[in-house]
Design a protein around this nucleic acid. Structure first.
Lengths: 340, 340
DNA sequence: TTGAAAGCGCTAACAC
DNA sequence: GTGTTAGCGCTTTCAA
């Protein structure tokens, strides 16, 4: 369909409404802000007029004057995994929940994807004055960058792991404990040669690997370096990890993957290679993304409570915006046993 | 961890940089904009100084002056389905792809969820001056609202169906054709009693039902009202559609669902009721969401090319921002035969 | 080549 | 109660 010609409406400004109402802009401004200084009848008349005319306060001007934006910036740094799209299910589910929570509080959501973090990327986001607070989803490999701003910028909350020497407020799941849960489950199943799949550039992955090693040590099983293979967070072309493992000739009877997406990719690759899950190889993922429960076989995984996580992040952020001191939150992970 | 006390950095303004450089703000402004009026050495000196000081132009002030925001507003109206979260996979995947495309063009993404559209919701979004253009994902039941602004506001593109009397520029998939594809596939499978699942308040669903009826008519099969059951877009508690069908005693040997999420929910409900897919009941969904290929059995569905859809939407939007006239795009749907 | 000054649209301190 | 006015931080016209 050819779109018809558009005749733009002139943008009304407060002065226009003031003129129509026969008052000054201050009065309109106060009336629209429900300021009791303006007598109720007049206030109502002005509000009605503004409504009728379709007038809405210019947020840009208002923001400049008030030095606030009514906006929260949700940032996804993709440093560790250059071509990972926002399309990754974990990030997307997190974004959705954060957006729900932020909207609930009457704030707007600014969504920023940082493709290849260049030095100062976070400072630039903060200094650009586009938001009243920043929520970062995942530390990626940007721990230093986060620390760098944490001491001078309060309204910042990060989703991630409890890495040492962390100056910023964090919400996350205890990755080490989660990984131990996963590996202990595999050990209980009688598995002994357990592979770890994950690219250890993101701190979360490192922590999960640490939990993996701890669980093995606790069971008296020596860790075998050949059983750890790198895997990017996204599944499709980056199945090098599992392929590498498969072609290396190393034998293994279980896989603990640093994320569900990696786990799902691994299952697919193994199936193609003639290995059955869970008969030949047991698999445990991490995240409990929506796909995990619909996949076949339904994926056994470590659940991160994203609903609660999003609520906590937003709650902490608003506390910090108000100048309060906050305490980081690490939630207990939960093993969800399904069929892999 | 207790977060340490934060000592906020004073926010630098352009005047500060100007003072340090010993020039006026005009010069700094021009230098940072790479204006050739400023001799290169001076320009470089100022840019370097700004970098070193971590100065970034205040976008709020810049926007007010320039009357632009460098931001695209991605809007999700949830009129037809009050409690549908942004968490719905289809919306989320669309948001991710749109964000990717918008970011690629150097614009910011403002994400707005409209919970219960009140009259004038879209006008308010537009008039608030927070973005240079609006992308609406799905018509929901807001066709009239979209039409209402389309004649006076150009930079608007909607993802949705080709409904009659549509004034706004749209990108979408030919829902009628897609539905026909789905039903023809089921007919080819020998199915004759095909149920339709979907809440016909959104135009897309209506179109899909229309295609369903057309395909049945073409095959000389009378449509049976009892075989159409309402279903919300989200799966979990809203399985009334399939449950209603199951408890009504109507017999059916196939289901065409208006979305993958509905299809997945239906399969689950039927499995619980002792009906096997695809042995007893064949199922075809719509969307080809990521879960569809991981689910078990892998879902046969009508594919919407979201990657291309997102690219088209953003491309058309930027053309409209530049004042060009655009033509709506409806892509050919594709039947993806998997195992249901 | 550079700077002074106006103004984007709004809010609020201050004056009446 | 209401209006006048200053100013948020920036860009750009105009003048030098």
């Amino acid at each position: 369909m050819k779109s018809r010609t558009v005749t733009p409406k002139p943008r009304l400004k407060m002065a226009d409404i003031a003129k129509m109402a026969g008052v000054s802009t201050s009065t309109v401004s106060r009336a629209l802000a429900d300021n009791p200084l303006i007598p109720l009848p007049l206030r109502e008349r002005i509000v009605a007029l503004a409504r009728a005319q379709g007038y809405v306060v210019n947020q840009q001007a208002r923001g400049l004057r008030l030095q606030r934006t009514n906006t929260i910036n949700v940032v996804i740094p993709l440093g560790h995994d250059k071509d990972q799209l926002i399309s990754d299910p974990f990030f997307l589910e997190m974004v959705g929940r954060l957006a729900d929570q932020i909207t609930l509080r009457g704030y707007e959501v600014l969504l920023t994807k940082v493709m290849s973090p260049t030095p100062g990327w976070l400072e630039r986001i903060i200094q650009s004055n586009r938001s009243d607070g920043v929520l970062v989803i995942g530390q990626s490999d940007q721990h230093q960058a986060l620390n760098a701003v944490a001491d001078s910028y309060a309204p910042l909350v990060v989703w991630g792991g409890d890495v040492p020497d962390r100056h910023y407020c964090t919400v996350g799941v205890d990755s080490v404990a989660g990984a131990r849960l996963a590996v202990e489950h595999l050990l209980k199943l009688g598995r002994r040669r357990i592979a770890f799949l994950g690219l250890p550039e993101a701190p979360e992955v490192l922590l999960r690997r640490q939990g993996y090693l701890e669980a093995l040590a606790a069971a008296g099983i020596p860790a075998e370096p050949a059983l750890t293979a790198p895997a990017h967070f996204n599944a499709e072309p980056e199945l090098e990890g599992i392929h590498h493992l498969l072609s290396s000739g190393v034998t293994f009877d279980a896989v603990f993957a640093a994320s569900d997406v990696i786990a799902l990719g691994a299952i697919r690759a193994m199936t193609e290679a003639g290995l059955r899950t869970p008969e030949d190889v047991s698999v445990v993922g991490f995240d409990d993304v929506t796909v995990a429960q619909y996949s076949w076989p339904p994926l056994t995984t470590i659940r991160q409570d994203l609903d609660r996580g999003a609520r906590e992040m937003v709650e902490l952020l608003f506390q910090r915006i108000e100048g309060k001191t906050t305490t980081s939150v690490f939630m207990a992970p939960e093993l969800v046993v399904r069929q892999t």
